[in-house]
Design a protein around this nucleic acid. Sequence first.
DNA 1: CAGTGGTCTAGACCACAAC
DNA 2: TTGTGGTCTAGACCACTGG
Lengths: 234, 234
Amino acid sequence: MLPAADLQGFREVKAEILRRITVGLWPPGSLLPGELALAQEFSVARATVNRALRELDEAGLLERKRKAGTRVRLAPLRQARFEMPVVRDEIEKTGASYRYALIRRESLVAPDWLRARLGMVAGARAVHLICLHSADGLPYQLEDRWINAEALPQAMTQDFLDRGPNEWLIATVPYSEVEVSFSAEAAGGDEAEHLDFPLGAPVFRVERMTWWQSAGITHVTMSYRQGYRLTTRY
Amino acid sequence: MLPAADLQGFREVKAEILRRITVGLWPPGSLLPGELALAQEFSVARATVNRALRELDEAGLLERKRKAGTRVRLAPLRQARFEMPVVRDEIEKTGASYRYALIRRESLVAPDWLRARLGMVAGARAVHLICLHSADGLPYQLEDRWINAEALPQAMTQDFLDRGPNEWLIATVPYSEVEVSFSAEAAGGDEAEHLDFPLGAPVFRVERMTWWQSAGITHVTMSYRQGYRLTTRY
DNA sequence: CAGTGGTCTAGACCACAAC
DNA sequence: TTGTGGTCTAGACCACTGG
């Protein structure tokens, strides 16, 4: 091994370890030197090496076990991370003008499927909203939202005329547990009408449920305009 | 404030801080005490508080600036993280049997769109593969892959009959820069035929490009069987 | 049982940005 | 200028787990 120039911070240590993996010096499955050995080689404290290794582990490149040591993963864990901003920000970030419109608003007894998903009691009431978010006047996202009115009674008195329920919820519920899923579906009647799709055309849908303190808060289905792509790089 | 029971590790500190945010003690936009103050309150070292705050920051809940201090984000950054395992693992994890089949294999001059995407020179050759991955005999994923043969000449001599190009690439190219995107598209001829879709039906597509040391390696479009959903929780 | 990673501590210096 | 987070260090104890 070449004489190791002294590295400075955990970032450099991380980069050097990554380099050794990419050039094949530490092939998949191989055992890395212990933290102490690496710390001595790089002339840094063990905590510095630890942070570098921990971040590479979290990134899915390494596999660490006490006593067994640190190994390069045979198949690096492929994981993708997406930022999911509020629609308004997503649109305004592109320079387009944002417009919001409430299409339908109704207050009713929660349907069975919603009660099951959010864990609501029988007979519980819910607010149902349909909203359209547009970019430069063109339909961008159709939002079909249900809010648990037992958990959030304030939702009953909101008119949601000026801003979308998403923004209102974010400002109202401090923090929540979330489940998101993506899928491709055939456009239904509402989507066809408001997003200007042919009926049955492919729609990119994002479905999200959120809980707060173990109470189901809201369920939303967001359908995007044609050609929408969710992209990330890492 | 109630007398703070002494907390033990960074996880407990993190949980306590999260609790104070969720119950509204530290509302969105508010300024948290400094690391030193928190360390004293919880009777831990500043490094412990630092790690707790750093992780909450990475999770998108806090906003930290030198000199300005740590604030609760007005709108918590919503970010979703998805595990994207190799198809074989994804299928076998459900208990289903995995089957791989090579449908087409051709070696040709890279088309313009591919050259543009991967940064290949004019006239560069590429290997084009179409593969089907099945679960319990049912079509699960159709893979349409291009490999840059200039960057990976070994791809020319691989037959890809026994295992998918994805697994071969993972074992061959140590590490790469990746761009992933998700979209909903209308099923084309290949998809209709091999995934047993009606032509034009909605298909969930994942597109991925990878680079290694700034050389474009591969481009792949993966189309999933009907009903496929990508789900995550956080 | 012994080696490895996981975490904590106390103290320190520095960089940045608000004032 | 000065306060805050960002990071490093040296040392320590502990928990898990492989041999």
